[in-house]
Amino acid sequence: MPMESKEIKELIDRYLAAETNLSEEERLKTYFRSGNVDSSLNWAKMLFAYSETAREEQLDSSSVSSSRFDWRRVAASVAIICVTSFGVYRLQENHQQKQMQLAYQQTKEAFDLIATQMNKGTTSVSYLGYYEKSVSSLLNN
């Protein structure tokens, strides 16, 4: 392929002079990616191979977690939110039940108190019966 290699050499010269456009540079990359090249162009093969791997270089995901969108993370957070909110709900329910029981106890105590006071009241009122009896017996006589 003397025609092609001549064209490539011309492109390389223009590349070194920074006169090639992006599509010509793409053409060079493709050329050097595939097959054997003239040993005088070994440097170019290395250079283009490197520039392509350099483009692949990535900021690794483990070190910068906030930037990567990871479904496993989303799923994990959703699960945590569900579990904690359910827990809080259950805890609240439990708490409510306890409060209700407490209120019931307090009301019962209050009623008991009223009942004992009432009983005291009725026993003292029952003395009035004697009073009425004696009054009526006096009046009738």
């Binding site: 070194l16 002079a17 920074a18 070994n42 440097w43 170019a44 290395m46 250079l47």
Partner: peptide, 19 residues
């Protein structure tokens, strides 16, 4: 363009030496 050309030529020279 001048800077780019210098960079490319410089890389070429170093690589040729190593080769």
């Amino acid at each position: 363009r001048v800077n780019l050309s210098r960079a490319r030529k410089r890389i070429k020279e170093s690589l040729e030496q190593i080769d």
